[in-house]
């Protein structure tokens, strides 16, 4: 039950993009086509779940027992960077089609603040191992959902007559604002 609440909270109520503003850069950058939004969302969810596992182990098995929690930020970011590289290498070896679908998005993920945010939130909230994995999955699902909805809207927007100064980023942000309002309707589910 507690795990379900964490999942719903991370995916919908406290959506990483629309409530915490994490991962805005890819949100604005990659959300103009539905197909790339889906790939980006899947790649991010995958890395987020792995990050949740690895950062939890690092934090609770190394940093805390040896009183090194001041090294939290540098070690988390290094772990994420090497994780992304590793995932890229593995996918390239294992599945070429998957690599073609996700490959170009992987390097972008290193600088996606949603990943570091996830690792930091997880250690701040003192989640258990299972809770942290579910938190990672939920955050990834929420990120994908926001990205896909946004891409769907933007594909339609391409056909609309948007005033010139609003084209591009401004209209994207305004649509995101309306989406954030809509997502507030999920509050109270937990």
């Amino acid at each position: 039950m507690e795990l379900f609440v964490i999942f719903i909270s991370a995916a919908l109520v406290n959506n990483f993009v629309l409530a915490y503003f994490l991962g805005i850069c890819p949100f604005v950058g990659v959300s103009n086509k539905l197909s790339s939004a889906i790939s980006m969302g899947m790649a991010t969810t995958f890395v987020m779940t792995l990050t949740a596992i690895v950062s939890w182990l690092l934090y609770n098995l190394i940093l805390i027992p040896y009183n090194l929690d001041f090294l939290q930020i540098p070690s988390f970011i290094l772990v994420i960077a090497s994780l992304v590289q590793f995932v890229e290498m593995v996918i390239k070896k294992v599945s070429q089609p998957l690599y073609r679908a996700l490959g170009i998005f992987l390097p972008l993920i290193t600088t996606n603040c949603a990943i570091l945010g996830l690792a930091l939130f997880g250690s701040m909230r003192e989640y258990s191992f299972a809770e942290n994995i579910i938190f990672g999955l939920g955050a990834g699902a929420g990120f994908t959902l926001a990205l896909v909805i946004m891409a769907g809207i933007r594909e339609e927007l391409d056909l609309a007559d948007v005033p010139k100064p609003f084209r591009g980023a401004p209209i994207t942000l305004i649509v995101a604002g309306i989406l954030a309002l809509a997502f507030m309707g999920f509050a109270g589910m937990i």
Partner: peptide
């Protein structure tokens, strides 16, 4: 609210 942040920045960028 979060929504206000998006809207304000969107309008500022348009400006």
């Amino acid at each position: 609210l979060p929504a206000g942040a998006f809207l304000t920045l969107g309008l500022l960028l348009a400006l």
